[in-house]
Design a protein around this nucleic acid. Structure first.
Lengths: 171, 171
DNA sequence: GAAATTAGTTGTATATACCAACGGTTGTAT
DNA sequence: ATACAACCGTTGGTATATACAACTAATTTC
């Protein structure tokens, strides 16, 4: 495939838009850091509610999104359906979700948060909301305004750039 | 629009606290999404270079940060030292890092990227830079400006900024 | 020089996650 | 209608990830 890279002509480093390259480097650094930080945080938070990390995420998805088939959950969490299936099994065992099938199609398994699951989900969301309110209060007001939007924008951008594998000769 | 300090108790409920709560909710949603998205991306990217996810991160840390003791790596990646130790073992087996001990203290194991490790690290950084340049090019120019800053701000706010002593190159 | 401290490794258990194979269900074509 | 294909979810197998605890070796403290 061609690699035109039209928007970037980094010929002139001192003028034009070297800022784009610099910004990319900062972005790389910040995202690497953020990725590890978020994982560590997720581990700690999930443990607080006696959930595994993926159970934690799945419960929030189900709590916020309503009944979802197993495949839908997998897509949402960027997981294989097999992983999502086991995930559901764990939540089921804890009584946090319920399974049912639509009358129209017996293959499908719809996952739905139980009352207990919804309560837990709401409690978690509440705690998180508090946490993030504190965070927002502590940062620069300008950032406070744009941060959520920036993250949404980022997620969107990341979702679009799903580069395929590119094999290369090992040296 | 600038949001004046809502310390004055006014009847207007749409400014001040409610907006903070709204922003917190958006932040929670975006971060949950981002956390899972980043993990999925990391998996794919690491696989591209025939590395595990944590090896991928560790190599970048060592490449950017220079020689680091095992404990330092663990702190940096928010991992247990035992995990970092095994991580190092994997990288060592692939010839990407080298171990040595400072003469002053034989307990310490300093991890240092080998030539091969450095080459790979640089290659990865190069690819990532390209990727992020594309991403930045594709988003709203305003966001492009603030996104890196927003992420750094966020990391700081998350309180887990583990900045290594990274000798910043020329400015 | 003995005791406490520290750095790293290893043992053990659990979680994560893929791929592949399978079983039951639904849809389609002959 | 019957065979076949496609689809959804589950299970088996495997590899990695990660924590906690126990251990070894080296250093520091007293």
């Amino acid at each position: 495939m061609p690699n035109p890279n039209p928007a970037v002509d980094s010929q002139a480093p001192s003028s034009g838009r070297p800022s784009l390259l610099r910004a990319a480097a900062r972005l790389e650094d910040a995202l690497g850091n953020l990725s590890r930080t978020l994982q560590a945080r997720d581990r700690g938070r999930a443990a607080r509610y006696d959930l595994s990390v993926s159970q934690f995420h799945a419960l929030l998805v189900l709590g916020k999104g309503g009944p979802t088939p197993v495949t839908g959950l997998a897509d949402h969490l960027h997981l294989e359906k097999s992983t999502a299936s086991r995930l559901a099994k764990g939540l089921l065992a804890r009584g946090l979700v319920r399974k049912r099938s639509p009358a129209s199609d017996d293959r499908v398994v719809i996952l739905q948060a139980t009352e207990q699951g919804l309560r837990l989900s709401r409690r978690i969301l509440n705690d998180l909301s508090e946490e993030y309110t504190d965070l927002l209060s502590s940062i620069d007001p300008t950032m406070r305004e744009v941060l959520p939007q920036a993250l949404e924008c980022l997620s969107e951008g990341l979702g679009l750039i799903s580069s395929p594998e590119r094999p290369e000769p090992e040296s």
